[in-house]
Design a protein around this nucleic acid. Structure first.
Length: 265
DNA sequence: AGCCAGGTAAGTC
DNA sequence: GACTTACATGGC
Protein backbone atom coordinates (compact mmCIF):
# COMPACT_ATOMS: atom_id res chain seq x y z
CA UNK A 1 0.00 0.00 0.00
CA UNK A 2 1.36 3.36 -1.08
CA UNK A 3 0.26 6.83 -0.12
CA UNK A 4 -0.85 9.22 -2.83
CA UNK A 5 2.11 11.56 -2.27
CA UNK A 6 4.41 8.70 -3.28
CA UNK A 7 2.32 7.41 -6.19
CA UNK A 8 -0.62 9.28 -7.65
CA UNK A 9 -2.38 6.98 -10.16
CA UNK A 10 -4.68 9.70 -11.50
CA UNK A 11 -1.74 11.90 -12.46
CA UNK A 12 0.47 9.00 -13.53
CA UNK A 13 -2.04 7.42 -15.90
CA UNK A 14 -3.79 10.62 -16.92
CA UNK A 15 -0.88 12.92 -17.75
CA UNK A 16 -0.50 11.79 -21.35
CA UNK A 17 2.51 9.50 -20.96
CA UNK A 18 0.47 6.33 -21.59
CA UNK A 19 -2.74 5.82 -23.53
CA UNK A 20 -3.20 2.11 -22.87
CA UNK A 21 -5.50 1.86 -19.85
CA UNK A 22 -9.12 1.63 -18.81
CA UNK A 23 -10.56 3.79 -16.02
CA UNK A 24 -13.48 2.66 -13.89
CA UNK A 25 -14.13 5.09 -11.05
CA UNK A 26 -11.07 4.88 -8.78
CA UNK A 27 -9.67 1.84 -10.61
CA UNK A 28 -7.06 2.01 -13.38
CA UNK A 29 -6.57 -1.17 -15.42
CA UNK A 30 -3.89 -1.96 -17.99
CA UNK A 31 -1.68 -4.87 -19.02
CA UNK A 32 2.02 -5.60 -18.64
CA UNK A 33 3.70 -8.48 -20.50
CA UNK A 34 0.29 -10.08 -21.00
CA UNK A 35 -0.76 -9.76 -17.32
CA UNK A 36 -3.61 -7.61 -16.13
CA UNK A 37 -2.51 -4.80 -13.78
CA UNK A 38 -5.11 -3.19 -11.52
CA UNK A 39 -4.39 -0.01 -9.56
CA UNK A 40 -7.00 1.19 -7.10
CA UNK A 41 -6.98 4.34 -5.03
CA UNK A 42 -8.77 4.14 -1.68
CA UNK A 43 -8.86 6.59 1.23
CA UNK A 44 -6.18 4.44 2.89
CA UNK A 45 -3.83 4.52 -0.10
CA UNK A 46 -3.04 3.01 -3.49
CA UNK A 47 -3.32 -0.76 -4.02
CA UNK A 48 -1.73 -2.63 -6.92
CA UNK A 49 -2.93 -6.12 -7.81
CA UNK A 50 -1.42 -8.21 -10.61
CA UNK A 51 0.21 -11.53 -11.43
CA UNK A 52 3.11 -9.77 -13.12
CA UNK A 53 6.45 -9.98 -11.26
CA UNK A 54 6.78 -7.25 -8.64
CA UNK A 55 10.09 -6.08 -10.03
CA UNK A 56 8.59 -5.56 -13.50
CA UNK A 57 5.59 -3.73 -12.08
CA UNK A 58 7.79 -1.40 -10.06
CA UNK A 59 9.84 -0.61 -13.16
CA UNK A 60 6.70 -0.18 -15.29
CA UNK A 61 5.17 2.36 -12.90
CA UNK A 62 8.41 4.19 -12.11
CA UNK A 63 8.11 3.23 -8.44
CA UNK A 64 11.87 2.96 -7.98
CA UNK A 65 12.53 6.49 -9.25
CA UNK A 66 13.97 8.57 -6.37
CA UNK A 67 11.07 11.01 -6.22
CA UNK A 68 12.41 13.19 -3.38
CA UNK A 69 15.80 13.56 -5.03
CA UNK A 70 14.04 14.31 -8.33
CA UNK A 71 12.02 17.07 -6.65
CA UNK A 72 15.20 18.57 -5.24
CA UNK A 73 16.74 18.58 -8.70
CA UNK A 74 13.84 20.03 -10.70
CA UNK A 75 12.63 22.62 -8.18
CA UNK A 76 14.79 25.31 -9.73
CA UNK A 77 12.44 28.24 -9.03
CA UNK A 78 9.18 29.29 -7.44
CA UNK A 79 7.07 28.15 -10.37
CA UNK A 80 8.48 24.63 -10.16
CA UNK A 81 7.70 24.58 -6.43
CA UNK A 82 4.04 25.13 -7.25
CA UNK A 83 4.13 22.68 -10.16
CA UNK A 84 5.63 19.91 -8.02
CA UNK A 85 3.03 20.58 -5.34
CA UNK A 86 0.27 20.31 -7.94
CA UNK A 87 1.50 17.00 -9.38
CA UNK A 88 3.06 15.31 -6.35
CA UNK A 89 3.14 11.53 -6.76
CA UNK A 90 3.17 11.56 -10.57
CA UNK A 91 5.78 9.04 -11.74
CA UNK A 92 7.29 8.50 -15.17
CA UNK A 93 6.39 5.05 -16.47
CA UNK A 94 8.47 2.68 -18.60
CA UNK A 95 5.63 1.84 -20.94
CA UNK A 96 5.74 -1.02 -23.43
CA UNK A 97 7.92 0.11 -26.35
CA UNK A 98 5.59 -0.74 -29.23
CA UNK A 99 2.46 0.50 -27.46
CA UNK A 100 4.23 3.75 -26.62
CA UNK A 101 5.59 4.19 -30.14
CA UNK A 102 2.28 3.68 -31.93
CA UNK A 103 0.34 5.68 -29.33
CA UNK A 104 2.50 8.75 -29.85
CA UNK A 105 2.32 8.40 -33.64
CA UNK A 106 -1.46 8.49 -33.16
CA UNK A 107 -1.28 11.46 -30.78
CA UNK A 108 -0.01 13.98 -33.36
CA UNK A 109 -2.35 16.90 -34.02
CA UNK A 110 -4.81 15.41 -31.57
CA UNK A 111 -5.57 15.52 -27.83
CA UNK A 112 -4.70 13.20 -24.95
CA UNK A 113 -8.40 12.38 -24.53
CA UNK A 114 -8.97 11.49 -28.18
CA UNK A 115 -5.76 9.48 -28.39
CA UNK A 116 -6.71 7.51 -25.28
CA UNK A 117 -10.05 6.63 -26.86
CA UNK A 118 -8.38 5.69 -30.11
CA UNK A 119 -5.83 3.41 -28.43
CA UNK A 120 -8.61 1.84 -26.41
CA UNK A 121 -10.61 1.02 -29.55
CA UNK A 122 -7.47 -0.32 -31.21
CA UNK A 123 -6.79 -2.66 -28.28
CA UNK A 124 -10.40 -3.80 -28.03
CA UNK A 125 -10.49 -4.53 -31.76
CA UNK A 126 -7.08 -6.14 -32.26
CA UNK A 127 -5.57 -6.90 -28.83
CA UNK A 128 -6.21 -9.87 -26.57
CA UNK A 129 -8.58 -9.71 -23.62
CA UNK A 130 -6.83 -10.08 -20.23
CA UNK A 131 -9.25 -9.73 -17.32
CA UNK A 132 -11.04 -6.44 -17.87
CA UNK A 133 -8.30 -5.05 -20.11
CA UNK A 134 -6.86 -5.79 -23.53
CA UNK A 135 -3.25 -6.09 -24.58
CA UNK A 136 -1.89 -3.60 -27.10
CA UNK A 137 -1.96 -5.24 -30.54
CA UNK A 138 1.31 -6.90 -31.57
CA UNK A 139 3.48 -5.46 -34.36
CA UNK A 140 2.55 -8.47 -36.50
CA UNK A 141 -1.16 -7.87 -36.00
CA UNK A 142 -0.97 -4.16 -36.85
CA UNK A 143 1.30 -4.82 -39.82
CA UNK A 144 -1.35 -7.16 -41.22
CA UNK A 145 -4.15 -4.57 -41.18
CA UNK A 146 -5.30 -2.34 -44.02
CA UNK A 147 -5.55 1.44 -44.06
CA UNK A 148 -9.33 1.11 -44.07
CA UNK A 149 -9.24 -1.09 -40.94
CA UNK A 150 -7.45 1.73 -39.14
CA UNK A 151 -9.43 4.60 -40.63
CA UNK A 152 -12.58 2.85 -39.42
CA UNK A 153 -11.34 3.36 -35.85
CA UNK A 154 -10.70 7.08 -36.44
CA UNK A 155 -6.95 6.94 -37.07
CA UNK A 156 -7.33 9.30 -40.04
CA UNK A 157 -4.30 10.38 -42.03
CA UNK A 158 -1.97 8.57 -39.59
CA UNK A 159 -3.12 5.16 -40.91
CA UNK A 160 -0.25 4.68 -43.40
CA UNK A 161 2.27 5.82 -40.77
CA UNK A 162 1.05 3.17 -38.33
CA UNK A 163 1.18 0.43 -40.96
CA UNK A 164 4.63 1.41 -42.21
CA UNK A 165 6.06 1.71 -38.71
CA UNK A 166 4.56 -1.64 -37.63
CA UNK A 167 6.08 -3.26 -40.71
CA UNK A 168 9.49 -1.76 -40.01
CA UNK A 169 9.38 -3.13 -36.47
CA UNK A 170 8.34 -6.58 -37.73
CA UNK A 171 11.11 -6.49 -40.33
CA UNK A 172 13.69 -5.44 -37.74
CA UNK A 173 14.53 -2.24 -39.63
CA UNK A 174 14.50 -0.57 -36.20
CA UNK A 175 15.02 -2.79 -33.15
CA UNK A 176 14.06 -2.07 -29.57
CA UNK A 177 17.12 -3.96 -28.31
CA UNK A 178 19.40 -1.73 -30.39
CA UNK A 179 17.64 1.43 -29.22
CA UNK A 180 18.12 0.38 -25.61
CA UNK A 181 21.88 0.30 -25.84
CA UNK A 182 22.25 3.50 -27.88
CA UNK A 183 22.93 6.84 -26.25
CA UNK A 184 20.34 9.62 -26.48
CA UNK A 185 21.57 11.23 -29.67
CA UNK A 186 21.85 7.97 -31.59
CA UNK A 187 18.51 6.58 -30.41
CA UNK A 188 16.79 9.88 -31.18
CA UNK A 189 18.00 9.69 -34.78
CA UNK A 190 17.29 5.98 -35.12
CA UNK A 191 13.67 6.38 -34.02
CA UNK A 192 13.10 9.01 -36.69
CA UNK A 193 13.67 6.39 -39.39
CA UNK A 194 10.16 5.21 -38.51
CA UNK A 195 7.14 6.62 -40.34
CA UNK A 196 5.24 9.29 -38.45
CA UNK A 197 8.13 9.73 -36.03
CA UNK A 198 9.83 13.13 -35.91
CA UNK A 199 11.88 14.73 -33.14
CA UNK A 200 8.95 15.20 -30.76
CA UNK A 201 7.52 11.68 -31.00
CA UNK A 202 11.03 10.23 -30.74
CA UNK A 203 11.57 12.18 -27.51
CA UNK A 204 8.25 10.94 -26.14
CA UNK A 205 9.24 7.32 -26.76
CA UNK A 206 12.66 7.86 -25.19
CA UNK A 207 11.02 9.49 -22.17
CA UNK A 208 7.93 7.34 -21.65
CA UNK A 209 9.23 3.91 -22.61
CA UNK A 210 13.00 3.77 -22.84
CA UNK A 211 13.75 5.45 -19.51
CA UNK A 212 15.61 8.55 -20.74
CA UNK A 213 14.58 10.74 -17.82
CA UNK A 214 16.74 13.63 -19.01
CA UNK A 215 14.70 14.29 -22.14
CA UNK A 216 12.22 17.03 -23.02
CA UNK A 217 9.60 16.58 -25.75
CA UNK A 218 8.79 19.97 -27.26
CA UNK A 219 5.12 19.98 -28.20
CA UNK A 220 2.73 22.90 -28.47
CA UNK A 221 1.93 22.89 -24.76
CA UNK A 222 5.55 22.81 -23.58
CA UNK A 223 6.33 25.50 -26.12
CA UNK A 224 3.53 27.59 -24.60
CA UNK A 225 5.06 27.06 -21.14
CA UNK A 226 8.44 28.14 -22.46
CA UNK A 227 7.03 31.28 -24.09
CA UNK A 228 5.08 32.21 -20.97
CA UNK A 229 7.59 31.36 -18.23
CA UNK A 230 11.00 30.53 -19.71
CA UNK A 231 11.39 32.71 -22.84
CA UNK A 232 15.17 32.80 -22.32
CA UNK A 233 15.27 29.08 -23.19
CA UNK A 234 13.80 29.64 -26.66
CA UNK A 235 16.32 28.69 -29.34
CA UNK A 236 16.34 28.85 -33.13
CA UNK A 237 15.48 25.18 -33.56
CA UNK A 238 13.92 22.19 -31.83
CA UNK A 239 17.36 20.87 -30.90
CA UNK A 240 18.65 24.14 -29.51
CA UNK A 241 15.55 24.82 -27.40
CA UNK A 242 15.62 21.26 -26.09
CA UNK A 243 19.30 21.64 -25.13
CA UNK A 244 18.58 24.88 -23.29
CA UNK A 245 15.68 23.26 -21.48
CA UNK A 246 17.82 20.26 -20.46
CA UNK A 247 20.56 22.55 -19.18
CA UNK A 248 18.05 24.38 -17.00
CA UNK A 249 16.38 21.32 -15.48
CA UNK A 250 19.19 18.77 -15.39
CA UNK A 251 19.29 14.98 -15.21
CA UNK A 252 15.55 14.74 -14.46
CA UNK A 253 14.42 17.15 -17.16
CA UNK A 254 11.82 14.59 -18.23
CA UNK A 255 10.12 14.87 -14.85
CA UNK A 256 10.18 18.68 -15.06
CA UNK A 257 8.70 18.50 -18.55
CA UNK A 258 5.93 16.07 -17.64
CA UNK A 259 5.02 18.01 -14.50
CA UNK A 260 4.89 21.28 -16.44
CA UNK A 261 2.81 19.64 -19.16
CA UNK A 262 0.31 18.28 -16.63
CA UNK A 263 0.22 21.51 -14.61
CA UNK A 264 -0.36 23.71 -17.67
CA UNK A 265 -3.26 21.55 -18.90
C1' DA B 1 -17.68 28.51 -39.69
C1' DG B 2 -13.21 28.58 -38.26
C1' DC B 3 -9.63 27.27 -35.17
C1' DC B 4 -7.05 24.19 -32.48
C1' DA B 5 -5.15 19.71 -30.81
C1' DG B 6 1.45 15.89 -27.42
C1' DG B 7 3.58 16.95 -35.50
C1' DT B 8 5.21 14.90 -39.57
C1' DA B 9 6.14 14.33 -44.50
C1' DA B 10 6.82 16.12 -48.83
C1' DG B 11 7.73 19.86 -51.63
C1' DT B 12 10.12 24.24 -52.42
C1' DC B 13 13.76 27.73 -52.13
C1' DG C 1 18.66 23.59 -43.36
C1' DA C 2 14.63 26.85 -43.04
C1' DC C 3 9.95 27.62 -44.67
C1' DT C 4 5.13 26.10 -46.46
C1' DT C 5 1.39 23.23 -46.89
C1' DA C 6 -1.60 19.13 -46.57
C1' DC C 7 -3.07 15.85 -43.70
C1' DA C 8 -8.34 13.13 -40.73
C1' DT C 9 -10.93 13.81 -36.97
C1' DG C 10 -13.59 15.84 -33.27
C1' DG C 11 -14.55 19.45 -29.75
C1' DC C 12 -15.48 24.11 -28.92
Amino acid sequence: MLVREEFNPEKTFGCGQTYHYWLDGDLWITTLDGHEVRVRETPEGVEISTDAPTKRVREFLGLDDPLHEIYREITVDGLMERVVEDCRGLRLMRDDFFACLISFVLSTQSTVERTTGLVRRLCEAYGEGVGEAYTFPSPETLAGLTEDDLRGLGVGYRAPYVLETARMIVDGAVRETDLRRMDYREAHEELQKLSGVGPKVADCVLLCSLGHLGVVALDTRINNVIDAHYPELRGDSYGETARNFRERFGAYTGYAQTYLYEWWG
